[in-house]
Amino acid sequence: MRGYLFRRILSVVPTLLGITLVTFLLLEILPGREMALSQASGANLPSRETLDRLRQTYHLNEPIPIRYFQWLLRLCRWDLGESLLDHRPVSEALRQTTARTLALNLLALSLALAISVPLGTRWAAVAGSLRDRVGSLLLYLLYAFPGFAAALILQYLFAVRWGVLPLQGVRSLPATAPLLQRSLDLAAHLLLPVLCLAYGSLAYLARFTRASVLEGLRSHYVDAARARGVDERVIVWRHAFRNALVPMVTLLGALVPALLGGSILVETIFSWPGMGRLYFESLQNRDYPVVLALTVVTALLTLAGSLLADVLYCVADPRVEPEQGFHGRLS
């Protein structure tokens, strides 16, 4: 197990290198570098000398492989550089926005799980019944409902029409207000964006849970338990459900990338200053250092997520050989 872990961690390095190299090259061929330099100079129509001077500063006259290695070296020291736009250190912008996006997405995921897992389990127990079919249909309808439309409707109803929730932003109270009030204010601001993010994933999380629990319910040990006279409720929740948790955990590992970048629409509509919005805006502005930094962070977290999922899987089910991992179980 330890050997497997070690090898997995080592394999992160070439994957990461590959991702960064591809991103770096893509940004190279993307048109618009002149505009990025103009932005960096801060002037409207910068002179030739200003642009040349900036090219020197950012080493843009050197060949691509050298630039890539220089950037890698700085990365090893976690020197993510400065934004071309406002010259603030990228790590600072990253820290603030990552925390906000993670908060939003983790809450949304928790909410979605809290609703869909019990539902999916109940439906597995009554698989094929009217409740099961109608319930699934309703969730699929929700899934099909576009995110921006939901956001606009929720905003209109709760903030404009009824005025019970704030429309946008992170907070409405100053930083000097008492902690309790600030926490409630933050919760009020989180409610609508979290709802918007959560409702779309209810369908597949519920179906996934249902499928896993159903598989458990059809297995031999459940038959044996029924034969022993164990109560059906206990069978569903203590036996089938517990075993269904294992593939759930691996699914969560795969959801990590979405946690960071999947909320850009909601972030824009609700003026939530998070990573998704930062990624989109810095790409539009050709703010290369920020785009590269965000890509690295997302890649790292994604790899960490999948590693975590594999490890948890092995821990949860001791029968599984470490090499099989995720694929061994569901094949």
Partner: peptide, 10 residues
């Protein structure tokens, strides 16, 4: 959202 913020009084 800007327009809605006006309607909501924010």
């Amino acid at each position: 959202t800007q327009f809605r913020a006006l309607l909501a009084g924010e």
